[in-house]
């Protein structure tokens, strides 16, 4: 195949740009991974650019000596609760936005997006005050509720666009052939929406998993992982910090790896 000069140049530029973007993401990740498993002596050796001796000691210390396993568990619980609550509320809302016409629908949609205008910092203090009054302070459910407030607009808009993409005929056929509206939703529409919903759930998970501000303000004892790391690992030696970074990044990476196809579907981008 013959290639014109311009085309070749274009290709080189494209690849160069792609390499820069990939490097921009991968180099810090690589450094975190290497440093997390580096033997501290190697890490602090100024004659070595990259440590070559590795150990699982740092991760072990962080998880079991500094008891980060507890905050990891807390994070998982909070993320799980956040997904459960935001889907319990967001799914029906998204479905109604997709399927029914009602007065003030557009205003309602705008309001939902408007919720995202409030910075978390603005929300955190009122949250704390209210939580202290109603006894939710320092509880995991409290953090999960705050995270729900952050993720709900996202869940509503995503599920509504997912349900809009599934022709109503499928549901109506279900109803004609013996299902109630509820059953038609659960047996026809939900299975069809599942890949997209799974991706949305993962996104909520990562949002909650990574959220540090509200989690640090609302909770003192039952800290989630990022809040815990913020406090304990900050004073620890560097390899422990990187070990913390590693633990933070790992679940997100695993999820994105499995869900990348659906993430694209959720955002409505067609990449082929």
């Amino acid at each position: 195949m013959k290639m014109y000069k311009g085309e070749a140049l274009k290709m080189i530029l494209t690849y160069a740009l792609a390499s820069i973007i990939v490097a921009w993401i991968l180099v810090p990740l690589g450094l975190i991974f290497i440093s997390a498993f580096a033997v501290p002596k190697e890490y602090y050796n100024i004659h070595k650019l990259i440590p070559l001796a590795f150990t699982t000691e740092n991760v072990y210390t962080l998880l079991f000596v500094l008891k980060a396993w507890k905050s990891t568990l807390n994070s998982l619980i909070v993320a799980g609760l956040t997904i459960a609550i935001s889907f319990a509320l967001g799914l029906p809302t998204g479905y109604s936005l997709a399927r029914f016409m009602f007065k003030g629908k557009d205003t309602f949609k705008l309001l939902i997006i408007g919720l995202r205008m409030f910075p978390v910092i603005v929300l955190a203090i009122p949250f704390t005050v209210i939580y202290l009054k109603i006894g939710l302070a320092d509880t995991l459910i409290g953090v999960a509720l705050a995270h729900t407030a952050m993720s709900l607009p996202f869940v509503v808009l995503i599920t509504s666009s997912l349900f809009s993409g599934i022709p109503v005929d499928y549901e109506e056929a279900g109803m004609v052939f013996g299902l109630s509206r509820f059953e038609a939703f659960f047996r026809i529409t939900l299975p069809l929406a599942l890949p997209g919903l799974a991706a949305a759930a993962i996104f909520v998970f990562i949002m909650s998993w990574n959220e540090v501000f509200i989690a640090s303000v609302l909770v003192l004892v039952n800290r989630t992982l990022p809040a815990d790391i913020l406090v304990s690992a900050l004073n620890a030696p560097d390899p422990l910090k990187f070990a913390a970074g590693f633990i933070m990044v790992l679940p997100a990476m695993i999820f994105v790896f499995f869900a990348r196809k659906y993430l694209i579907q959720v955002w409505g981008i067609t990449i082929r």
Partner: peptide, 12 residues
Amino acid sequence: SMVFQSYAVWPH
């Protein structure tokens, strides 16, 4: 029972 214009044959 009904035959729909779009057929509505369940894709899954």
